[in-house]
Design a protein around this nucleic acid. Structure first.
Lengths: 222, 222
DNA sequence: CGGTGTATTTTGTGATCACAGTGTGTCATG
DNA sequence: CATGACACACTGTGATCACAAAATACACCG
């Protein structure tokens, strides 16, 4: 009924490229401003430029990549205003998704989230930025999947995608030593079934994680 | 700084196709389930299939079009659950955008919105569904542009895009005779600078306009 | 006359090519 | 040694083609 969303069997060439690039961007494997070429992408996925172009076009539409006026492709370098705006969108959507998932969150789900959270803590200890981002997003997505709101989750993933390279740059320079921030509060609110506490925990988790961005100007322009 | 968003000069072939199709979908010129072909699109824009494919890929990524497993392209036929979900996303984003625009909304803006609203009323009187949708969206967008939140507005336009064909189908069958619903409340709240009233007016305007959807089942499946 | 098989047309996919614009590197010159 | 222009390599764009899958039309058989 809703093709192209969660159907694993399909494996057209452009879809492989799309998924591969998408994960690379979302997980922060590419730093902001990284230049990409269609021929290079095609070569690394062993396809011609045609599927590479379509994948890039699609990712550009989602804000995962930017294209200069001359068509040059690169990962986005976000301004501070943009970062704050994307953070506030997360702060708007994620509490809502969490709240919708709350009534459907049984113990098995909470247990799975705890185990993901432990993997996340290990990634922090190992200073593995990419794995940290990956498990962090998986922690959140595992919860939101229960909200049964695919469109809202889709929008949120778009936001994550746009923040991917920036988050990587962030976590690379302020080397976290502490464990993930407010995830424990989230889990407690889930167990308690406390909607207000859950919304608050999500909001602070999101804003806290991205507030440290607007510090070093460097290339403040606008 | 953010190419491909609001820069009129660019005119590559695939961009013309993209913009053209996008407007057709968003304004409800195409009913839900309308089938499209790449060659047909290319012919109607006088280009080959290549730019048509890229435009379709992009619109598919934004949810404006759907592709079957075999690659067939069509405008989306939304389930009732999906419609309600999209409406609730509108109800989440639009009050926020309106609130952000409130402090920057001077009298000239309100005047412009009033004139758009009059055009909207004329469209209602003329039973012109497409023009009704167009002016209605323009009314909202004129306000939200003042919010200076391009990412949030971009997400919202994605939602509008997904609802385009469905809104057309809706307004086609329940022939409005009354003027636009809660736009007057919105304008009054803007003039009064009343944030709470503005948020409420937006929320009701959005949900009211789409609540009448889940009535006729016809093809209730899930 | 209805259903089923096949044949034909239509469709999306991916590769390849020619082309124009851009950026970069280099070499000559002041 | 610095600065300028020029040339070459590179990049994205759009058109075209061969191909396979799908949908449609059609004819044949029960």
């Amino acid at each position: 009924m809703r093709p192209g969303f969660s159907d694993p069997p399909v494996q057209s060439a452009h879809d492989r490229v799309y998924r591969g690039l998408r994960l690379q961007v979302m997980h922060g494997e590419l730093l902001p401003g990284t230049a990409l070429t269609l021929r290079g992408i095609g070569k690394s996925f062993d396809v011609s430029m045609t599927p590479a172009r379509e994948a890039v076009r699609r990712l550009t539409a989602e804000g995962a990549l930017t294209m200069s006026a001359s068509g040059r492709v690169a990962t986005p370098e976000l301004s501070n205003e943009r970062i704050e705006e994307l953070a506030s969108i997360r702060a708007l959507l994620e509490p809502e998704l969490a709240s919708r998932a709350l009534r459907r969150a049984h113990l098995a789900l909470i247990g799975r989230m705890e185990s993901i959270n432990e993997a996340n803590a290990r990634a922090v200890h190992r200073q593995d930025a990419v794995e940290y981002i990956r498990t962090n997003l998986e922690f959140h997505r595992t919860l939101y999947l229960r909200a049964q709101s695919p469109a809202m989750l889709g929008l949120l993933e778009t936001v994550w995608l746009q923040l991917g390279p920036t988050m990587r740059a962030l976590y690379a320079r302020l080397r976290r030593t502490a464990a993930p921030p407010h995830h424990r509060l989230i889990l407690e609110a889930l167990r308690a079934g406390d909607d207000a506490a859950l919304r608050l925990a999500l909001r602070t988790d999101v804003t806290q994680g991205l507030r440290h961005l607007a510090v070093y100007p460097g290339e403040a322009r606008a």
